[in-house]
Design a protein around this nucleic acid. Structure first.
Lengths: 136, 136
DNA sequence: GTCAAACTACGATGTCTCTCGTACAATGGG
DNA sequence: CCCATTGTACGAGAGACATCGTAGTTTGAC
């Protein structure tokens, strides 16, 4: 049938992402620019219970949190993986601080791109959690 | 390490779903009840470009649409697959009418469960489409 | 310098997903 | 009854994903 190949479910190009996060230490992490953030990528990132939970905890507190402050029922390797997915999809921003890696929601960028979306999503997760689901 | 196994990324239980859609013809299709709809499942369904596109077309028009009215760049088999994912996640409702299968957004159920979410998602998709993405 | 803490890299594994093609079933019109 | 239209079932293949374990790197404290 020879159909158009327009790269479905492939959100990990990143291409030349901005690597300009020289925090207190020298290590930098690749983040997509605001304009590179794709809705499908964000939804994919948030469609995993573990990641939705992370984002909910991140949204609950004001400050940034290090990876180790999340008590997730998975190993450290898996935790690293989930945080990377969140960062590469543009949902969170990660910065090294000493041996820790601090995580913060990219609220400004997400609100700028998709006004109201993040709040709706968080409210939805909250509602479902109250209903007896386990997404956070 | 022996961690808790709490069924991550497994949204397809459905269990005893409601199969009470005897439309004009006799064939019925399993839909999750409103309370069975899970946010993660909805996000997962919408994280695919093809399905996001379907939902956007569905939301644009008022009336229900048959599967064949969507001109998707995939085969019929694949189209069937995507519509099933959307139905099983609770995003759309499907009903047979003659040889056609009519599709409608489950707006009431989604708005009831997650107020504002669907609109935010559609607005986000619209915005991204205007920006030059291809999600619809 | 040594050491613990925090996180990463890599490879493996099992499952899921997207896609297809072919063959099949249900419906309604002549 | 025959047939076109519409959609399904099934099986397969390529690739993505979540998870793990082990081994390694980076950092800061002593």
């Amino acid at each position: 049938m020879s159909l158009v190949q327009w790269g479905c479910h492939r959100f990990r190009d990143e291409g030349a992402a901005a690597v300009t996060d020289t925090a207190s230490t020298g290590r930098a992490l690749p983040h997509p620019d605001r304009e590179e953030i794709r809705l499908e990528g964000v939804l994919h990132a948030l469609s995993d219970p573990m990641r939705l939970r992370i984002v909910r905890e991140l949204a609950a507190g004001e400050a940034e949190l290090s990876c180790s402050q999340f008590e997730l029922p998975v190993t450290k390797s898996t935790t690293t993986h989930h945080f990377r997915v969140l960062r590469e999809s543009g949902v969170i921003r990660q910065v090294y601080r000493g041996t820790a890696k601090m995580n913060g929601l990219r609220r400004d960028d997400l609100d700028g791109l998709f006004p109201g979306l993040l709040d709706s999503l968080l409210a939805a997760a909250e509602r479902q959690a109250g209903r007896g689901g386990t997404p956070g």
